[in-house]
Nucleic acid binder design. Structure first.
Length: 567
RNA sequence: CGGGCUGUGGCGCAGCCUGGCUAGCGCGCUUGCUUGGGGUGCAAGAGGUCCCGGGUUCAAAUCCCGGCAGCCCGACCA
Protein backbone atom coordinates (compact mmCIF):
# COMPACT_ATOMS: atom_id res chain seq x y z
CA UNK A 1 0.00 0.00 0.00
CA UNK A 2 1.04 3.54 -0.71
CA UNK A 3 1.12 5.69 2.39
CA UNK A 4 -0.03 8.82 0.55
CA UNK A 5 -3.34 7.12 -0.18
CA UNK A 6 -4.02 5.97 3.38
CA UNK A 7 -5.76 7.53 6.34
CA UNK A 8 -3.22 7.48 9.15
CA UNK A 9 -3.91 10.59 11.18
CA UNK A 10 -0.86 10.88 13.41
CA UNK A 11 -0.65 13.69 15.91
CA UNK A 12 2.42 15.71 16.58
CA UNK A 13 1.48 16.36 20.18
CA UNK A 14 0.17 14.15 22.94
CA UNK A 15 -3.59 14.31 23.30
CA UNK A 16 -4.49 16.01 26.57
CA UNK A 17 -7.08 13.46 27.65
CA UNK A 18 -4.85 10.42 27.49
CA UNK A 19 -2.88 9.28 30.50
CA UNK A 20 -1.69 5.74 30.04
CA UNK A 21 0.83 4.89 27.33
CA UNK A 22 -1.44 2.71 25.23
CA UNK A 23 -4.21 5.28 25.13
CA UNK A 24 -1.86 8.15 24.39
CA UNK A 25 0.11 6.34 21.71
CA UNK A 26 -2.80 4.64 19.96
CA UNK A 27 -4.42 8.06 19.62
CA UNK A 28 -1.25 9.80 18.56
CA UNK A 29 -0.28 7.12 16.09
CA UNK A 30 -3.68 7.33 14.44
CA UNK A 31 -4.93 3.87 15.40
CA UNK A 32 -8.05 5.01 17.20
CA UNK A 33 -10.33 7.97 17.82
CA UNK A 34 -12.81 8.34 20.60
CA UNK A 35 -16.53 8.46 19.85
CA UNK A 36 -17.82 8.79 23.43
CA UNK A 37 -16.83 7.64 26.90
CA UNK A 38 -15.70 4.05 26.59
CA UNK A 39 -16.47 3.91 22.87
CA UNK A 40 -13.73 4.06 20.28
CA UNK A 41 -13.55 4.11 16.54
CA UNK A 42 -10.92 1.65 15.38
CA UNK A 43 -9.34 3.23 12.35
CA UNK A 44 -7.32 1.53 9.67
CA UNK A 45 -4.23 0.76 11.74
CA UNK A 46 -6.12 -0.55 14.77
CA UNK A 47 -8.30 -2.70 12.57
CA UNK A 48 -5.25 -4.21 10.86
CA UNK A 49 -3.67 -5.07 14.20
CA UNK A 50 -6.92 -6.47 15.51
CA UNK A 51 -7.35 -8.63 12.44
CA UNK A 52 -3.85 -10.01 12.97
CA UNK A 53 -4.60 -10.72 16.61
CA UNK A 54 -7.91 -12.43 15.87
CA UNK A 55 -6.25 -14.49 13.17
CA UNK A 56 -3.73 -15.81 15.67
CA UNK A 57 -6.53 -16.50 18.13
CA UNK A 58 -8.50 -18.39 15.45
CA UNK A 59 -5.57 -20.50 14.41
CA UNK A 60 -4.80 -21.55 17.96
CA UNK A 61 -8.41 -22.18 18.89
CA UNK A 62 -8.95 -24.24 15.77
CA UNK A 63 -5.79 -26.16 16.65
CA UNK A 64 -7.42 -27.48 19.83
CA UNK A 65 -10.50 -28.54 17.93
CA UNK A 66 -12.64 -25.55 18.78
CA UNK A 67 -15.42 -24.59 16.40
CA UNK A 68 -16.11 -20.96 15.58
CA UNK A 69 -19.68 -19.67 15.90
CA UNK A 70 -21.14 -16.22 15.71
CA UNK A 71 -23.99 -15.46 18.08
CA UNK A 72 -26.22 -12.40 18.39
CA UNK A 73 -24.91 -9.60 20.55
CA UNK A 74 -28.52 -8.69 21.25
CA UNK A 75 -30.06 -11.21 23.62
CA UNK A 76 -33.58 -11.85 24.90
CA UNK A 77 -34.01 -11.32 28.63
CA UNK A 78 -35.39 -14.84 29.09
CA UNK A 79 -32.12 -16.73 28.90
CA UNK A 80 -30.48 -14.28 31.28
CA UNK A 81 -33.38 -14.64 33.66
CA UNK A 82 -33.05 -18.40 33.57
CA UNK A 83 -29.43 -18.28 34.64
CA UNK A 84 -30.20 -15.63 37.22
CA UNK A 85 -27.75 -13.17 35.75
CA UNK A 86 -30.48 -10.78 34.60
CA UNK A 87 -30.59 -9.70 38.26
CA UNK A 88 -27.02 -10.43 39.33
CA UNK A 89 -25.43 -8.22 36.68
CA UNK A 90 -27.33 -5.15 37.79
CA UNK A 91 -26.47 -1.93 36.03
CA UNK A 92 -23.50 -3.42 34.22
CA UNK A 93 -25.84 -5.06 31.75
CA UNK A 94 -27.10 -2.85 28.94
CA UNK A 95 -30.85 -3.36 28.80
CA UNK A 96 -33.41 -2.28 26.26
CA UNK A 97 -36.92 -3.02 25.08
CA UNK A 98 -38.13 -3.81 21.60
CA UNK A 99 -41.20 -2.21 20.03
CA UNK A 100 -43.44 -4.76 21.68
CA UNK A 101 -42.06 -4.00 25.08
CA UNK A 102 -40.06 -7.20 25.35
CA UNK A 103 -36.91 -6.99 27.46
CA UNK A 104 -33.60 -7.45 25.71
CA UNK A 105 -29.99 -6.93 26.67
CA UNK A 106 -26.64 -6.58 25.00
CA UNK A 107 -24.49 -9.58 25.82
CA UNK A 108 -21.55 -9.16 28.18
CA UNK A 109 -20.64 -12.81 27.61
CA UNK A 110 -22.49 -15.71 26.06
CA UNK A 111 -22.79 -18.54 28.57
CA UNK A 112 -26.57 -18.35 28.40
CA UNK A 113 -26.87 -18.34 24.64
CA UNK A 114 -24.31 -21.11 24.19
CA UNK A 115 -26.07 -23.21 26.79
CA UNK A 116 -29.40 -22.58 25.12
CA UNK A 117 -27.99 -23.93 21.88
CA UNK A 118 -26.55 -26.92 23.65
CA UNK A 119 -29.73 -27.87 25.49
CA UNK A 120 -31.74 -27.86 22.33
CA UNK A 121 -29.32 -29.94 20.35
CA UNK A 122 -27.01 -32.03 22.48
CA UNK A 123 -28.80 -35.23 23.48
CA UNK A 124 -26.21 -37.96 23.74
CA UNK A 125 -22.90 -38.43 25.49
CA UNK A 126 -21.63 -39.40 22.04
CA UNK A 127 -21.84 -35.73 21.04
CA UNK A 128 -19.48 -34.69 23.82
CA UNK A 129 -17.05 -33.10 24.30
CA UNK A 130 -17.71 -29.88 22.41
CA UNK A 131 -15.64 -26.71 22.25
CA UNK A 132 -17.50 -23.73 20.81
CA UNK A 133 -16.16 -20.25 20.47
CA UNK A 134 -16.78 -16.92 18.84
CA UNK A 135 -15.04 -13.62 18.39
CA UNK A 136 -17.68 -11.10 19.19
CA UNK A 137 -18.41 -7.63 20.40
CA UNK A 138 -19.38 -7.46 24.05
CA UNK A 139 -21.15 -4.70 25.89
CA UNK A 140 -20.83 -3.63 29.48
CA UNK A 141 -22.22 -0.47 30.97
CA UNK A 142 -19.06 0.22 32.93
CA UNK A 143 -19.40 2.59 35.89
CA UNK A 144 -16.21 4.19 34.75
CA UNK A 145 -14.71 3.50 31.34
CA UNK A 146 -11.08 4.55 31.34
CA UNK A 147 -7.55 4.22 30.10
CA UNK A 148 -8.44 4.22 26.43
CA UNK A 149 -9.06 0.72 25.11
CA UNK A 150 -8.31 -0.92 28.45
CA UNK A 151 -11.75 -0.48 29.94
CA UNK A 152 -14.48 0.30 27.45
CA UNK A 153 -18.20 -0.20 27.17
CA UNK A 154 -17.94 -2.08 23.91
CA UNK A 155 -15.08 -4.42 23.15
CA UNK A 156 -14.17 -7.56 21.27
CA UNK A 157 -13.79 -10.81 23.07
CA UNK A 158 -12.91 -14.29 22.05
CA UNK A 159 -15.11 -16.39 24.27
CA UNK A 160 -15.23 -20.17 24.24
CA UNK A 161 -17.37 -22.67 26.07
CA UNK A 162 -16.81 -26.34 26.65
CA UNK A 163 -19.29 -29.10 27.35
CA UNK A 164 -18.05 -32.34 28.85
CA UNK A 165 -19.60 -35.43 30.32
CA UNK A 166 -17.24 -35.67 33.28
CA UNK A 167 -15.07 -33.44 35.47
CA UNK A 168 -12.05 -35.21 33.99
CA UNK A 169 -13.25 -34.12 30.57
CA UNK A 170 -13.52 -30.55 31.80
CA UNK A 171 -10.00 -30.78 33.18
CA UNK A 172 -8.78 -31.78 29.74
CA UNK A 173 -10.69 -28.95 28.02
CA UNK A 174 -9.34 -26.50 30.58
CA UNK A 175 -5.82 -27.73 30.02
CA UNK A 176 -6.20 -27.39 26.25
CA UNK A 177 -7.29 -23.80 26.68
CA UNK A 178 -4.47 -23.05 29.06
CA UNK A 179 -1.98 -24.25 26.46
CA UNK A 180 -3.73 -22.53 23.56
CA UNK A 181 -3.75 -19.25 25.49
CA UNK A 182 -0.04 -19.51 26.14
CA UNK A 183 0.56 -20.06 22.44
CA UNK A 184 -1.68 -17.13 21.52
CA UNK A 185 0.01 -14.69 23.88
CA UNK A 186 3.46 -15.98 22.94
CA UNK A 187 2.70 -15.44 19.28
CA UNK A 188 1.43 -11.94 20.03
CA UNK A 189 4.83 -11.23 21.53
CA UNK A 190 3.60 -10.53 25.05
CA UNK A 191 5.28 -11.13 28.39
CA UNK A 192 2.64 -12.43 30.75
CA UNK A 193 2.06 -14.42 33.91
CA UNK A 194 -0.58 -17.03 34.56
CA UNK A 195 -2.12 -16.63 37.99
CA UNK A 196 -4.66 -18.39 40.14
CA UNK A 197 -7.78 -16.33 40.16
CA UNK A 198 -11.00 -15.85 41.99
CA UNK A 199 -13.98 -17.08 39.99
CA UNK A 200 -16.19 -14.22 41.16
CA UNK A 201 -19.76 -13.89 39.99
CA UNK A 202 -19.14 -16.58 37.39
CA UNK A 203 -19.24 -19.35 39.93
CA UNK A 204 -17.17 -22.46 39.42
CA UNK A 205 -14.20 -24.06 40.99
CA UNK A 206 -10.94 -23.34 39.27
CA UNK A 207 -9.85 -20.30 37.37
CA UNK A 208 -6.67 -18.79 36.00
CA UNK A 209 -5.99 -15.33 34.68
CA UNK A 210 -3.42 -14.36 32.10
CA UNK A 211 -1.85 -11.11 33.20
CA UNK A 212 0.57 -8.59 31.77
CA UNK A 213 2.52 -6.64 34.35
CA UNK A 214 1.88 -2.95 33.75
CA UNK A 215 1.19 0.15 35.79
CA UNK A 216 -1.75 0.83 33.52
CA UNK A 217 -3.48 -2.23 34.93
CA UNK A 218 -6.20 -2.40 37.51
CA UNK A 219 -5.59 -5.80 39.04
CA UNK A 220 -2.88 -6.81 41.44
CA UNK A 221 -0.92 -10.02 41.27
CA UNK A 222 1.17 -11.63 43.98
CA UNK A 223 4.19 -13.34 42.56
CA UNK A 224 7.05 -15.55 43.73
CA UNK A 225 9.34 -17.95 41.88
CA UNK A 226 6.85 -20.81 42.15
CA UNK A 227 3.66 -19.00 42.96
CA UNK A 228 1.43 -16.46 41.27
CA UNK A 229 -2.10 -15.47 42.20
CA UNK A 230 -4.49 -12.61 41.94
CA UNK A 231 -4.29 -10.50 45.07
CA UNK A 232 -7.96 -11.25 45.74
CA UNK A 233 -7.11 -14.89 46.07
CA UNK A 234 -3.43 -14.98 47.06
CA UNK A 235 -2.53 -16.95 50.15
CA UNK A 236 0.76 -16.19 51.82
CA UNK A 237 2.74 -16.52 55.01
CA UNK A 238 2.66 -13.30 56.99
CA UNK A 239 5.79 -11.69 58.32
CA UNK A 240 6.26 -12.75 61.96
CA UNK A 241 5.13 -10.16 64.52
CA UNK A 242 7.67 -7.42 65.14
CA UNK A 243 7.61 -8.11 68.88
CA UNK A 244 7.00 -11.37 70.72
CA UNK A 245 3.77 -11.66 72.70
CA UNK A 246 4.08 -11.26 76.47
CA UNK A 247 4.43 -14.58 78.28
CA UNK A 248 1.90 -15.88 80.79
CA UNK A 249 -1.84 -16.25 81.23
CA UNK A 250 -3.08 -12.75 81.77
CA UNK A 251 -6.60 -11.42 81.90
CA UNK A 252 -7.67 -8.46 79.78
CA UNK A 253 -6.94 -5.17 81.41
CA UNK A 254 -8.51 -1.90 80.33
CA UNK A 255 -6.44 1.22 79.85
CA UNK A 256 -7.22 4.78 78.78
CA UNK A 257 -6.29 5.78 75.22
CA UNK A 258 -7.65 9.31 74.79
CA UNK A 259 -8.13 10.23 71.14
CA UNK A 260 -6.14 7.22 69.93
CA UNK A 261 -8.30 5.81 67.17
CA UNK A 262 -6.07 4.26 64.58
CA UNK A 263 -3.75 1.30 64.84
CA UNK A 264 -0.84 3.67 64.30
CA UNK A 265 -2.06 5.98 67.10
CA UNK A 266 -2.28 3.12 69.54
CA UNK A 267 1.10 1.76 68.46
CA UNK A 268 2.66 5.14 69.14
CA UNK A 269 0.85 5.46 72.45
CA UNK A 270 1.72 2.02 73.80
CA UNK A 271 5.15 1.78 72.26
CA UNK A 272 4.19 -1.62 70.88
CA UNK A 273 4.30 -2.39 67.13
CA UNK A 274 1.17 -2.66 65.00
CA UNK A 275 1.67 -6.42 64.86
CA UNK A 276 0.89 -6.61 68.58
CA UNK A 277 -2.60 -5.28 67.99
CA UNK A 278 -5.79 -6.77 66.66
CA UNK A 279 -7.80 -4.74 64.20
CA UNK A 280 -11.56 -5.02 64.61
CA UNK A 281 -13.61 -4.56 61.46
CA UNK A 282 -17.36 -4.57 61.46
CA UNK A 283 -18.83 -5.91 58.23
CA UNK A 284 -22.35 -6.47 57.04
CA UNK A 285 -22.77 -9.65 54.99
CA UNK A 286 -26.18 -10.09 53.38
CA UNK A 287 -27.65 -7.98 56.15
CA UNK A 288 -25.91 -9.76 59.03
CA UNK A 289 -23.37 -7.94 61.14
CA UNK A 290 -20.08 -9.81 61.55
CA UNK A 291 -16.93 -8.83 63.41
CA UNK A 292 -13.68 -9.58 61.63
CA UNK A 293 -10.34 -9.61 63.45
CA UNK A 294 -7.06 -9.18 61.61
CA UNK A 295 -3.57 -8.33 62.78
CA UNK A 296 -2.99 -4.62 63.21
CA UNK A 297 -0.80 -4.28 60.13
CA UNK A 298 -3.03 -6.41 57.90
CA UNK A 299 -5.88 -5.58 55.55
CA UNK A 300 -9.09 -7.53 55.23
CA UNK A 301 -9.67 -9.07 51.82
CA UNK A 302 -13.33 -8.51 51.04
CA UNK A 303 -13.16 -11.25 48.45
CA UNK A 304 -12.01 -13.79 51.00
CA UNK A 305 -14.54 -12.50 53.48
CA UNK A 306 -17.20 -13.05 50.84
CA UNK A 307 -16.01 -16.59 50.17
CA UNK A 308 -16.02 -17.46 53.89
CA UNK A 309 -19.46 -16.02 54.58
CA UNK A 310 -20.94 -17.00 51.25
CA UNK A 311 -22.53 -13.58 51.15
CA UNK A 312 -22.99 -11.64 47.95
CA UNK A 313 -23.80 -8.24 49.41
CA UNK A 314 -20.88 -7.08 51.49
CA UNK A 315 -20.16 -3.73 52.99
CA UNK A 316 -18.59 -2.07 55.99
CA UNK A 317 -21.04 -1.33 58.78
CA UNK A 318 -22.42 2.16 59.16
CA UNK A 319 -21.47 4.15 62.29
CA UNK A 320 -24.99 3.72 63.73
CA UNK A 321 -24.87 -0.06 63.30
CA UNK A 322 -21.51 -0.12 65.01
CA UNK A 323 -22.76 1.88 67.95
CA UNK A 324 -25.83 -0.34 68.26
CA UNK A 325 -23.82 -3.56 68.46
CA UNK A 326 -20.74 -2.38 70.28
CA UNK A 327 -21.74 0.63 72.30
CA UNK A 328 -18.66 2.40 71.02
CA UNK A 329 -17.35 3.94 67.81
CA UNK A 330 -14.86 2.67 65.28
CA UNK A 331 -11.39 3.15 66.72
CA UNK A 332 -12.25 1.65 70.08
CA UNK A 333 -13.82 -1.64 69.02
CA UNK A 334 -12.77 -5.09 70.17
CA UNK A 335 -13.92 -8.72 70.30
CA UNK A 336 -14.24 -9.20 74.06
CA UNK A 337 -17.80 -9.67 75.26
CA UNK A 338 -19.24 -9.37 71.75
CA UNK A 339 -22.31 -11.50 71.01
CA UNK A 340 -22.19 -11.56 67.20
CA UNK A 341 -20.29 -13.93 64.91
CA UNK A 342 -16.55 -13.33 65.01
CA UNK A 343 -14.17 -14.32 62.24
CA UNK A 344 -10.43 -14.13 62.82
CA UNK A 345 -7.60 -14.24 60.36
CA UNK A 346 -5.20 -17.17 60.53
CA UNK A 347 -2.34 -14.83 61.41
CA UNK A 348 -3.95 -14.42 64.83
CA UNK A 349 -4.04 -18.14 65.57
CA UNK A 350 -1.77 -18.95 68.48
CA UNK A 351 -1.20 -15.32 69.39
CA UNK A 352 -1.80 -14.13 72.93
CA UNK A 353 -1.90 -11.10 75.18
CA UNK A 354 -2.58 -8.70 72.34
CA UNK A 355 -4.10 -5.25 72.30
CA UNK A 356 -7.63 -4.62 71.10
CA UNK A 357 -10.34 -2.02 71.52
CA UNK A 358 -12.42 -2.16 74.73
CA UNK A 359 -15.81 -1.33 73.16
CA UNK A 360 -15.74 1.81 75.23
CA UNK A 361 -14.69 5.03 73.54
CA UNK A 362 -11.08 6.02 74.23
CA UNK A 363 -10.25 2.74 75.93
CA UNK A 364 -8.33 -0.33 74.84
CA UNK A 365 -7.60 -3.70 76.39
CA UNK A 366 -4.24 -5.37 76.77
CA UNK A 367 -3.71 -9.10 77.25
CA UNK A 368 -6.45 -10.25 74.93
CA UNK A 369 -5.97 -13.83 73.72
CA UNK A 370 -8.03 -15.16 70.80
CA UNK A 371 -9.93 -18.35 71.63
CA UNK A 372 -9.69 -17.63 75.33
CA UNK A 373 -11.19 -14.19 75.79
CA UNK A 374 -13.41 -14.45 72.77
CA UNK A 375 -14.54 -17.29 70.57
CA UNK A 376 -13.94 -17.06 66.85
CA UNK A 377 -13.67 -19.00 63.61
CA UNK A 378 -10.21 -18.85 62.04
CA UNK A 379 -10.01 -18.38 58.28
CA UNK A 380 -7.62 -16.92 55.76
CA UNK A 381 -9.13 -13.46 55.55
CA UNK A 382 -6.34 -11.02 55.02
CA UNK A 383 -4.95 -9.58 51.87
CA UNK A 384 -1.42 -10.67 51.02
CA UNK A 385 1.19 -7.89 51.01
CA UNK A 386 4.63 -7.39 49.57
CA UNK A 387 7.08 -8.85 52.05
CA UNK A 388 4.98 -11.91 52.80
CA UNK A 389 6.52 -15.22 51.90
CA UNK A 390 5.32 -18.03 49.68
CA UNK A 391 3.33 -20.93 51.08
CA UNK A 392 5.01 -23.06 48.42
CA UNK A 393 8.67 -22.53 49.14
CA UNK A 394 9.02 -19.68 51.61
CA UNK A 395 10.52 -17.34 49.05
CA UNK A 396 9.61 -13.64 49.20
CA UNK A 397 6.54 -12.44 47.32
CA UNK A 398 6.14 -9.28 45.30
CA UNK A 399 2.97 -7.46 44.29
CA UNK A 400 2.48 -6.15 40.76
CA UNK A 401 -0.13 -4.10 38.98
CA UNK A 402 -1.41 -6.00 35.96
CA UNK A 403 -3.69 -5.95 32.94
CA UNK A 404 -5.91 -9.00 32.53
CA UNK A 405 -5.77 -10.29 28.96
CA UNK A 406 -7.32 -13.72 29.38
CA UNK A 407 -9.30 -15.69 31.90
CA UNK A 408 -10.23 -19.38 31.99
CA UNK A 409 -12.91 -20.85 34.25
CA UNK A 410 -14.17 -24.19 35.24
CA UNK A 411 -17.81 -23.28 35.41
CA UNK A 412 -19.12 -26.56 36.68
CA UNK A 413 -22.85 -27.07 36.43
CA UNK A 414 -24.04 -23.53 37.08
CA UNK A 415 -25.44 -22.89 33.62
CA UNK A 416 -26.13 -26.42 32.47
CA UNK A 417 -28.17 -27.03 35.61
CA UNK A 418 -30.05 -23.75 35.79
CA UNK A 419 -30.88 -23.89 32.12
CA UNK A 420 -31.69 -27.58 31.97
CA UNK A 421 -28.99 -28.98 29.69
CA UNK A 422 -29.05 -32.77 29.86
CA UNK A 423 -27.76 -35.63 27.74
CA UNK A 424 -28.17 -39.39 27.99
CA UNK A 425 -25.13 -41.32 29.14
CA UNK A 426 -24.07 -44.80 28.08
CA UNK A 427 -26.61 -46.43 30.34
CA UNK A 428 -29.43 -44.27 29.05
CA UNK A 429 -29.57 -42.13 32.16
CA UNK A 430 -29.97 -38.34 31.98
CA UNK A 431 -26.87 -36.48 33.07
CA UNK A 432 -25.95 -32.81 33.20
CA UNK A 433 -22.81 -31.91 31.26
CA UNK A 434 -20.12 -29.88 32.97
CA UNK A 435 -19.00 -26.62 31.43
CA UNK A 436 -16.03 -24.32 31.15
CA UNK A 437 -15.78 -20.80 29.82
CA UNK A 438 -12.73 -19.01 28.53
CA UNK A 439 -12.20 -15.41 27.47
CA UNK A 440 -9.59 -13.28 25.75
CA UNK A 441 -9.80 -9.50 25.49
CA UNK A 442 -8.72 -8.73 21.93
CA UNK A 443 -8.14 -4.99 22.39
CA UNK A 444 -6.35 -5.70 25.62
CA UNK A 445 -3.75 -7.67 23.71
CA UNK A 446 -3.15 -4.59 21.59
CA UNK A 447 -3.03 -2.32 24.65
CA UNK A 448 -0.80 -4.65 26.59
CA UNK A 449 1.63 -4.80 23.67
CA UNK A 450 1.81 -1.01 23.57
CA UNK A 451 2.15 -0.75 27.33
CA UNK A 452 4.92 -3.31 27.31
CA UNK A 453 6.77 -2.11 24.24
CA UNK A 454 7.12 1.61 23.72
CA UNK A 455 9.86 4.20 23.87
CA UNK A 456 10.21 7.96 23.52
CA UNK A 457 9.53 7.74 19.79
CA UNK A 458 6.35 5.73 20.04
CA UNK A 459 5.16 2.17 19.80
CA UNK A 460 7.51 -0.79 19.33
CA UNK A 461 4.87 -3.18 18.08
CA UNK A 462 5.61 -6.91 18.05
CA UNK A 463 5.89 -7.89 14.36
CA UNK A 464 3.12 -10.47 14.55
CA UNK A 465 0.49 -7.89 15.41
CA UNK A 466 1.93 -4.71 13.90
CA UNK A 467 -0.34 -3.16 11.27
CA UNK A 468 2.58 -3.39 8.85
CA UNK A 469 5.80 -5.28 9.27
CA UNK A 470 7.88 -3.21 6.89
CA UNK A 471 7.92 0.34 5.64
CA UNK A 472 9.92 1.22 2.57
CA UNK A 473 11.06 4.82 2.94
CA UNK A 474 12.66 6.64 0.02
CA UNK A 475 14.19 9.87 1.27
CA UNK A 476 12.97 11.62 -1.84
CA UNK A 477 10.41 9.75 -3.85
CA UNK A 478 10.61 12.18 -6.77
CA UNK A 479 14.22 11.18 -7.31
CA UNK A 480 14.07 8.74 -10.20
CA UNK A 481 16.65 6.28 -8.91
CA UNK A 482 15.16 6.24 -5.41
CA UNK A 483 11.67 5.87 -6.79
CA UNK A 484 12.72 2.90 -8.87
CA UNK A 485 14.62 1.17 -6.06
CA UNK A 486 11.84 1.79 -3.55
CA UNK A 487 9.19 0.41 -5.85
CA UNK A 488 11.31 -2.65 -6.63
CA UNK A 489 11.93 -3.38 -2.98
CA UNK A 490 8.29 -2.84 -2.10
CA UNK A 491 7.16 -5.24 -4.83
CA UNK A 492 9.78 -7.79 -3.82
CA UNK A 493 8.62 -7.56 -0.18
CA UNK A 494 5.04 -8.11 -1.20
CA UNK A 495 5.89 -11.13 -3.30
CA UNK A 496 7.73 -12.56 -0.27
CA UNK A 497 4.52 -12.23 1.70
CA UNK A 498 5.70 -9.31 3.82
CA UNK A 499 3.12 -6.84 4.97
CA UNK A 500 4.78 -3.79 3.48
CA UNK A 501 3.87 -0.17 3.04
CA UNK A 502 5.61 2.28 0.73
CA UNK A 503 6.01 5.77 2.16
CA UNK A 504 5.58 7.68 -1.10
CA UNK A 505 4.55 10.91 0.59
CA UNK A 506 6.13 14.17 -0.45
CA UNK A 507 7.33 14.77 3.08
CA UNK A 508 10.65 15.56 4.67
CA UNK A 509 12.57 12.44 5.71
CA UNK A 510 12.22 13.43 9.35
CA UNK A 511 8.46 13.35 9.10
CA UNK A 512 8.49 9.90 7.54
CA UNK A 513 10.89 8.52 10.13
CA UNK A 514 8.89 9.97 13.01
CA UNK A 515 5.63 8.57 11.72
CA UNK A 516 7.06 5.11 11.10
CA UNK A 517 8.56 5.06 14.60
CA UNK A 518 5.37 6.32 16.20
CA UNK A 519 3.19 3.70 14.56
CA UNK A 520 5.67 1.01 15.47
CA UNK A 521 6.46 -0.64 12.16
CA UNK A 522 9.11 -3.21 13.09
CA UNK A 523 11.36 -2.74 10.04
CA UNK A 524 12.18 0.17 7.82
CA UNK A 525 14.14 0.12 4.61
CA UNK A 526 15.55 3.57 3.96
CA UNK A 527 16.56 4.46 0.44
CA UNK A 528 18.84 7.46 0.24
CA UNK A 529 22.44 8.48 -0.23
CA UNK A 530 23.91 5.01 -0.27
CA UNK A 531 21.81 4.05 -3.26
CA UNK A 532 24.60 5.37 -5.46
CA UNK A 533 26.72 2.50 -4.13
CA UNK A 534 23.81 0.09 -4.55
CA UNK A 535 22.90 -0.06 -0.85
CA UNK A 536 19.85 0.66 1.21
CA UNK A 537 19.52 0.59 4.99
CA UNK A 538 17.44 -1.82 7.00
CA UNK A 539 16.56 -0.31 10.36
CA UNK A 540 15.20 -2.30 13.27
CA UNK A 541 12.55 -0.29 15.12
CA UNK A 542 13.24 -1.90 18.46
CA UNK A 543 17.03 -1.61 18.57
CA UNK A 544 17.38 1.31 16.11
CA UNK A 545 20.28 -0.57 14.54
CA UNK A 546 20.86 -0.11 10.86
CA UNK A 547 22.35 -2.53 8.34
CA UNK A 548 23.44 -1.71 4.80
CA UNK A 549 22.04 -4.20 2.32
CA UNK A 550 22.10 -4.42 -1.47
CA UNK A 551 18.87 -3.37 -3.16
CA UNK A 552 18.18 -6.82 -4.53
CA UNK A 553 18.57 -8.46 -1.13
CA UNK A 554 16.74 -5.93 1.03
CA UNK A 555 13.34 -7.58 1.13
CA UNK A 556 14.60 -11.08 1.76
CA UNK A 557 16.93 -9.72 4.43
CA UNK A 558 13.94 -8.37 6.32
CA UNK A 559 12.07 -11.60 5.85
CA UNK A 560 14.98 -13.52 7.36
CA UNK A 561 15.23 -11.12 10.29
CA UNK A 562 11.55 -11.48 10.92
CA UNK A 563 11.77 -15.25 10.96
CA UNK A 564 14.59 -15.05 13.48
CA UNK A 565 12.68 -12.72 15.76
CA UNK A 566 9.54 -14.76 15.87
CA UNK A 567 11.28 -18.01 16.70
C1' C B 1 -22.36 6.46 43.51
C1' G B 2 -18.70 10.06 46.31
C1' G B 3 -14.29 13.60 45.41
C1' G B 4 -11.27 16.68 42.01
C1' C B 5 -10.57 18.97 37.22
C1' U B 6 -11.68 20.52 32.16
C1' G B 7 -14.94 22.17 27.93
C1' U B 8 -12.26 28.33 23.16
C1' G B 9 -10.95 26.48 14.61
C1' G B 10 -8.65 19.36 13.41
C1' C B 11 -4.77 18.98 17.82
C1' G B 12 -2.20 21.48 22.05
C1' C B 13 -3.16 25.85 24.66
C1' A B 14 -3.66 31.49 26.18
C1' G B 15 -7.54 34.97 27.23
C1' C B 16 -11.87 34.48 32.12
C1' C B 17 -9.89 36.48 38.31
C1' U B 18 -10.49 42.61 37.01
C1' G B 19 -16.93 42.18 31.25
C1' G B 20 -15.48 46.55 26.34
C1' C B 21 -11.45 47.17 19.68
C1' U B 22 -11.95 42.54 14.33
C1' A B 23 -11.14 36.21 20.03
C1' G B 24 -5.23 35.20 20.03
C1' C B 25 -0.71 31.83 19.81
C1' G B 26 1.91 27.15 18.33
C1' C B 27 1.09 22.82 15.45
C1' G B 28 -1.80 20.90 11.52
C1' C B 29 -4.53 22.18 6.78
C1' U B 30 -4.67 24.87 1.45
C1' U B 31 -1.65 27.42 -2.55
C1' G B 32 3.15 28.92 -4.41
C1' C B 33 8.28 28.93 -4.02
C1' U B 34 12.13 26.56 -1.14
C1' U B 35 14.40 22.38 1.24
C1' G B 36 15.51 17.08 0.92
C1' G B 37 18.86 11.78 6.30
C1' G B 38 15.03 12.85 12.27
C1' G B 39 8.49 17.03 12.37
C1' U B 40 12.95 22.66 6.60
C1' G B 41 12.35 27.97 5.53
C1' C B 42 9.53 32.12 3.36
C1' A B 43 4.96 34.16 1.67
C1' A B 44 -0.23 34.25 1.00
C1' G B 45 -4.78 31.94 2.68
C1' A B 46 -9.03 28.85 4.63
C1' G B 47 -11.12 27.46 9.02
C1' G B 48 -14.55 29.43 15.37
C1' U B 49 -22.56 28.15 17.48
C1' C B 50 -15.85 30.39 22.74
C1' C B 51 -20.18 22.83 25.30
C1' C B 52 -25.78 23.90 25.75
C1' G B 53 -29.90 26.76 28.01
C1' G B 54 -31.38 30.72 30.96
C1' G B 55 -30.13 35.21 33.77
C1' U B 56 -27.41 39.95 35.09
C1' U B 57 -25.63 44.14 32.01
C1' C B 58 -25.63 49.44 27.40
C1' A B 59 -22.19 45.28 26.50
C1' A B 60 -20.71 38.26 28.33
C1' A B 61 -15.64 33.49 26.06
C1' U B 62 -15.28 36.39 30.73
C1' C B 63 -20.04 37.32 36.11
C1' C B 64 -24.53 34.24 38.21
C1' C B 65 -27.96 29.85 37.94
C1' G B 66 -29.21 25.18 35.67
C1' G B 67 -27.95 21.30 32.39
C1' C B 68 -24.71 18.21 29.26
C1' A B 69 -20.11 16.05 27.92
C1' G B 70 -15.12 14.45 28.80
C1' C B 71 -10.77 13.33 31.98
C1' C B 72 -8.55 11.81 36.72
C1' C B 73 -8.90 9.56 41.92
C1' G B 74 -11.93 6.38 44.92
C1' A B 75 -16.02 2.78 45.15
C1' C B 76 -17.52 -0.83 41.58
C1' C B 77 -15.83 -4.61 37.97
C1' A B 78 -15.43 -12.54 34.45
Amino acid sequence: MYWSKLFIPTLREDPAEAEVASHRLLLRAGYIRQLAAGLYNYLFLAQRSILKITQIVREEMDAIGAQEFYLPGLNPAEVWQESGRWDVMGDNLFRLKDRNGRDLCLGMTHEEVMTSIARGELRSYKQLPQIWYQIQTKFRDEPRPKSGLLRTRQFIMKDSYTFDLTPAGLDAAYEKHHKAYCRIFDRCGLDYVVVEAHSGAMGGSQSHEFMVVSDAGEDFVVKGPNYAANLEKAVSVAKPPAAADPEGDHEPEEFHTPGKKTIADVAGFTGLPETSQMKSLVMVADGKVVLVMVRGDHQLSETKFGSVTGATDIRAAHPEEIREHFGADAGSLGPVGVKIRILADEALRGRRNMIAGANKNDHHLRNVTPGKHFQCEFHDLRQAVEGDTSIVDGSPLTVHKTVEIGHIFKLGYKYSESMGLKVLDESGKEVTPIMGSYGIGIERILCAAVELFNDKDGIVMPPSIAPFTLVVTPINFSDTAQNKAATEIYEAAKSLGLDAILDDRDERPGVKFKDADLIGIPYRITIGKKLAQGFVEVVDRRTKTSTDVAVAEAASFVKARLAENTK
